[in-house]
């Protein structure tokens, strides 16, 4: 079936099997490999993308759900094409060592950005509750939580985008 959606700001139209998962569509058909597949069983959150502005697990989303929707992936966070400007949340992860191997990071960032957009002043408890669906095997979470709090503050200082 033919589906049309806005992908990282650009109108996109593709032919898919209804059983195609969005994570596979992104990685295999659209060459957007920033979205990771860690578990493929809806547990780890490495595959989180924003569907119509809210975080969802792209390994547990059928491609037909994209039709008419707006999709934002980790690749869509950068500013102008070619600019190396990081999103304030990405910058905070870099600054506060919020990653080691980096496998979980795209999903962490997408979840964290949605969390910060939802609530201006996040408490540590809210950050930990909000990250329950994102698993990291390296960091022990401490620096991720610190980075999300700093990134959220930076996002709001920059106008909440």
């Amino acid at each position: 079936m033919q589906i049309s959606f806005i992908l990282n700001g650009r109108p996109t139209s593709v032919e898919v099997e209804p059983s195609m998962l969005v994570a596979d569509l992104l990685r295999e058909q659209l060459d957007l490999t920033g979205t990771h597949v860690g578990c493929d069983t809806s547990q780890c959150g490495a595959c989180v993308v924003h569907l119509d502005g809210v975080p969802v697990k792209s390994c547990t989303l059928l491609a037909p759900a994209l039709d008419g929707a707006t999709l934002l992936t980790i690749e869509g966070l950068q500013g102008e094409p070619g600019s190396n400007r990081l999103h304030p949340m990405q910058e905070a992860f870099r600054e506060h060592h919020g990653l080691q191997c980096g496998f979980c990071t795209p999903g962490m960032l997408m979840t964290a950005i949605a969390l910060a957009q939802d609530k201006p002043n996040l408490t540590e408890a809210e950050v930990r509750h909000g990250l329950e669906g994102n698993i990291c095997r390296c960091t022990g979470y401490q620096n991720i939580v610190v980075a999300v709090m700093a990134g959220a503050a930076a996002m709001h200082a920059a106008g909440g985008e």
């Binding site: 959150g45 975080p55 329950e132």
Partner: peptide, 9 residues
């Protein structure tokens, strides 16, 4: 229930 991504779907 679950986590934010699960609750959104």
């Amino acid at each position: 229930i679950g986590d934010p991504a699960v609750r959104n779907r």
